[in-house]
Design a protein around this nucleic acid. Structure first.
Length: 238
DNA sequence: GGCGCATATCTCGTTACGTCA
DNA sequence: TATGACGTAACGAGATATGCG
């Protein structure tokens, strides 16, 4: 079936390398009588590997006989083949993970920008909501109101702010928008921890997007749908 | 049934040879 | 021709599974 004539001349090594006993370089197991398998041998082994990655002892003996190899050579070839196959699999999985990561990262950046845009939009809306309110209180008698307020007259017709702070009430001189820690404490002092829902509460500083739970709140457009359902991605990000 | 031993085979890491640019 | 990089056959160590007394 197979003979040495099938090997290329350059691959043929000394016929009996282990017979060379040299006192200076004693033959050890490291001195291998190595010879590459022929194309036909490789083809047969590959074919068998495709059908079963682990060879049964009986099949191993059969293959060895058919290919003119030692059973141990067949076993070792399968061991090495499994190792190479596993290595390639790992490479492929890594590539897939990397591609998924890149996709997710770009979506994350897009979501962040979208959130920023929404925050700006929300601030503008708050301003718009506040202006009519102020105008309603102040317009009828602007001059008079300023006088009354200077006199400490705080009746309902004046231009004073309502007792209950509104969205844009500038209690501490801070504008609305992104709240600092100080702002947050002040807000809590005036509104209580669980006060009425407020648009500002929805845009609480820039602390969102720091946890998966926060991210999931951005799912209005289904951006993260596929990832939210797969917890391993959160593990991947953490 | 539990234990100790021998054997086979596995994975993982490494070595050394063959090939090629 | 020499050389370095790469692929791969072969090996060793340690882990695991199985059979037997």
């Amino acid at each position: 079936m197979l003979d040495d004539g099938e090997y290329s001349p350059s691959t043929v090594v000394a016929a009996e390398p282990f017979a060379c006993i040299d006192s200076l370089t004693p033959m050890t197991k490291k001195n291998k009588n190595k010879r590459r398998f022929s194309d036909e041998q490789i083809r047969s082994l590959e074919t068998m590997f495709e059908s079963e990655a682990r060879l049964e002892p009986q099949k191993k003996l059969q293959m060895a006989t058919e290919l003119g190899l030692q059973p141990r050579q067949v076993a070792i070839w399968f061991q090495n083949k499994r190792a190479r196959w596993k290595s390639k699999q790992l490479e492929q999985e890594y590539s897939i993970l990397q591609a998924n990561y890149n996709t997710l990262a770009s979506k994350f950046e897009a979501a962040k920008k979208e959130k920023q845009a929404l925050v700006v939009q929300l601030q503008k809306l708050n301003d718009l909501m506040q202006k009519p309110q102020e105008e309603r209180h102040c317009k009828p008698d602007l001059a008079a109101n300023s006088t009354r307020s200077e006199l400490g007259n705080g009746d309902a017709t004046g231009c004073e702010l309502e007792t209950k702070p509104t969205l844009s009430t500038d209690i501490s001189g801070h504008g609305i928008g992104v709240l600092s820690d100080e702002d947050t404490s002040i807000k809590a002092e005036y509104f209580g921890q669980e006060d009425e829902p407020n648009l500002l509460n929805m845009v609480d500083a820039d602390s969102s997007l720091t946890s998966p739970e926060d991210w999931s709140s951005l799912n209005s457009d289904g951006l993260f749908h596929q990832y939210n359902s797969d917890s391993q991605w959160w593990d991947f990000w953490s």
